[in-house]
């Protein structure tokens, strides 16, 4: 019996989706009897685990799933007076309105592009930073630096944006002062459709990279010190140690954070965009969240914005599932 279970474990490791193998087995009449007793035994063996999950499931049902029924207003014309249930059904009207508006696709493109830049350039930075921090042997220095690195995470975008804009000012900003001293003409970064996404991405990195190191450092703290000892005995250099010990040690964390990041691919922070955006760069800077903000400001248009939200969720969900699949096919543990 034991062996069978192990086998299943192996299957799921290799990416076979049939996780719920036990349930599937129940459909075979002949197997039913056998699995019935397996079922009971496993239930009683793991009773404490299931006990722990009771409040958890209760929480998800009451606070996550119950209010989700409100999402039906995406298929209705929601009016306050009629309430969620009383409002008129309109089918896919709001989705059609959304997809038919020609500017929606531009907004969607901008949203995805900014997120891709953010992912490609932003995702590796905390990893590099935490590797650098991990190399620091002076404990006080490491702690101080790390504390300073995440400070911007706590400062609101209104302030960070203001500082960024003045740093990049063509007339008075430091960056252009440096460019000028190198004989390069000043660049109006914030008002250039080419530079703006770069600035946007950099500003995100500036704010979040230090904060992002926390989980990696936590993962590094759990790497078995003996591994490093052994590597040192073998005369491995620092870089080789990073490559062969540290990186594999945090690979699981990287994978999980990458998958979770996928869920946010359809979101761009509203505050950040509002602060950094200006009329010269709307072509590349108008995104879903600013669109919702504009539409939401008028008419209490909940049905429309809910429809948009559902669309975002669906895409995010698909992305999470697919990347989870891909990651697992590399032999890494995914979300499940």
């Amino acid at each position: 019996m034991n062996i069978r279970i192990e086998n299943k474990g192996v299957y799921s490791m290799t990416g076979n989706v049939s996780q719920a193998g036990a349930e599937a087995a129940a459909f075979h009449p002949r197997a039913a009897e056998r699995t019935g007793s397996v079922f009971k035994r496993r239930l009683s063996r793991d009773k404490y685990l299931y006990l722990m999950l009771v409040p958890v499931i209760g929480y998800y049902v009451v606070f996550k799933y119950a209010p989700m029924v409100g999402e039906v207003i995406a298929f209705k014309d929601y009016r306050f007076v009629d309430g969620i249930w009383g409002s008129k059904w309109v089918g896919l009207k709001h989705f059609r309105m959304l997809f038919e508006s020609s500017d929606f696709w531009k907004i969607l493109r901008n949203t995805l592009l900014l997120n891709v830049y953010n992912l490609v350039f932003g995702f590796p930075v905390p990893i590099v930073l935490s590797l650098m921090l991990n190399e620091v042997r002076k404990e006080w220095y490491k702690r101080t630096v790390q504390n300073l690195l995440y400070v911007p995470h706590f400062i609101s975008w209104v302030i960070l944006g203001g500082i960024f804009i003045s740093l990049l000012s063509p007339s008075t900003g430091v960056v252009n002062w440096i460019l000028r001293s190198m004989g390069i003409d000043p660049i109006y970064f914030m008002a250039s459709t080419t530079w703006w996404p770069v600035v946007y991405t950099l500003s995100s990195i500036w704010r979040e990279a230090g904060w992002g190191t926390i989980l990696y450092l936590a993962a590094m703290a759990n790497i078995d010190p003996q591994l490093y000892e052994a590597a040192k005995m073998d005369g491995a250099s620092r870089l080789r140690q990073i490559w062969h010990i540290t990186l594999p040690g945090i690979r699981g964390t990287m994978a999980i954070l990458l998958i979770l990041r996928m869920g946010q691919m359809m979101d761009v922070g509203l505050e950040q965009t509002l602060v950094l955006q200006n009329s010269a760069v709307l072509e590349v800077g108008d995104v879903i969240s600013t669109f919702v903000y504009r539409v939401g400001l008028q008419n209490a248009n909940y049905s429309y914005t809910t429809a948009l939200g559902l669309f975002q969720s669906a895409i995010g969900f698909i992305l999470v599932l697919s990347v989870n699949r891909i990651i697992k096919s590399f032999g890494e543990k995914g979300l499940w």
């Binding site: 500017d103 008002a191 009329s279 010269a280 709307l282 504009r294 400001l297 008028q298 248009n301």
Partner: peptide, 24 residues
């Protein structure tokens, strides 16, 4: 009118871009 409000909210970011192009 919802139609008017919707149009104006779609139009204003586009208009802002055009104006910025003209002026600057």
């Amino acid at each position: 009118l919802p139609e008017a409000n919707q149009l104006i909210s779609a139009f204003s970011p586009i208009a802002e871009q055009i104006e910025a192009k003209v002026v600057t």
